[in-house]
Design a binder for these strands. Structure first.
Lengths: 157, 157
DNA sequence: CTTATAAGTCTTGAAATGAGACTTAGTCAA
DNA sequence: TTGACTAAGTCTCATTTCAAGACTTATAAG
């Protein structure tokens, strides 16, 4: 399958990855969550090729994940800020960060610590159920096809 | 930066994405969570090029995210199953799926519904604090550098 | 024998990426 | 007013990765 066909699959993960699933986008968004907003700052922190950065930022704006906000005129300069849709990616990104903390630990402990402002503690991201509030893991969930889902091949029962 | 240098960055997200951050791997893992285990089944569901699938599966095994389990001999046939480390990716993947459900909705509702076996309800993934159990969002978290973190450029205060 | 199956490997042309030079529109200091 | 500097890109070209599909290996079934 070609990558540009992914967004037309009837799967939410495919659609999500069509928007943010290339090699650089999540790293760009990590920077955005750390309040990096300017082209040169993204470039310096990520050591990403300028052409690729330019292209990805444009795509993220088009997708409504970032928006361009002018911070000066003459010459016009824009910065990139997370939209509501962008901020909604936080749980996914924090889960990936904590997975890395756990499975690729560094000698000195995690490179970034996260404090929950409401309770004041450093914490790990936990997944919980929107209905009962209890913790959830892979074994505690059953996936069922929703409407219009295509047939699939050979899932072992 | 070259992609193979990513895993040496002192950032957990970089290390995570070095393992699973290419264009296909999360889709392969989605299939694995849906209990797809065989080469031809991954290929048929994903329409991925065989060479790429072969390479990605090998990398996931090397990373300890999948393991090969023989399910017959003569001829030897292996299937791919999630390890503990692989299962630990569930929160991140479910968060991405639910982000797609929300921001790229289909007419008939989500293509896959998730039931929390413990309480019996269909649910959405929520991020909560490991310390106090309350819900967490991007605005409610402060990131602080841990030890040995390199200097960064131009995060707007 | 011939065909079928599962799990790959190989080949080739197309597309994406990395590195870095170049461009544009303006400011600032001498 | 010339020259250096800045931010945000764009452009070029060599290298790398990918998509599509033919080919391979080991075995069983008819």
């Amino acid at each position: 399958m070609r990558w540009d066909a992914l967004s037309r699959e009837d799967c939410s993960l495919s659609k999500t990855l069509a928007a943010i699933g290339d090699r650089w986008t999540l790293l760009i968004l990590r920077e955005a969550f750390l309040r990096v907003r300017r082209f040169e700052a993204f470039e310096a922190n990520l050591k990403i090729a300028r052409r690729v950065l330019s292209e990805r930022l444009a795509l993220l704006v088009e997708e409504g994940i970032l928006r361009k906000v002018p911070y000066q005129e003459r010459p016009v300069r824009q910065e990139y800020r997370l939209t509501r849709k962008g901020l909604d990616l936080y749980p996914a990104i924090l889960s990936l960060v904590h997975w890395g903390d756990k499975h690729y630990p560094s000698k000195n402990g995690p490179p970034v610590l996260h404090t929950h402002l409401a309770c004041g503690h450093d914490f790990r991201a936990m997944l919980s159920c929107s209905e009962c509030g209890e913790a959830v893991d892979a074994r505690g969930v059953a996936a069922r096809p929703g409407k219009g889902r295509k047939a699939r091949v050979a899932a072992t029962p």
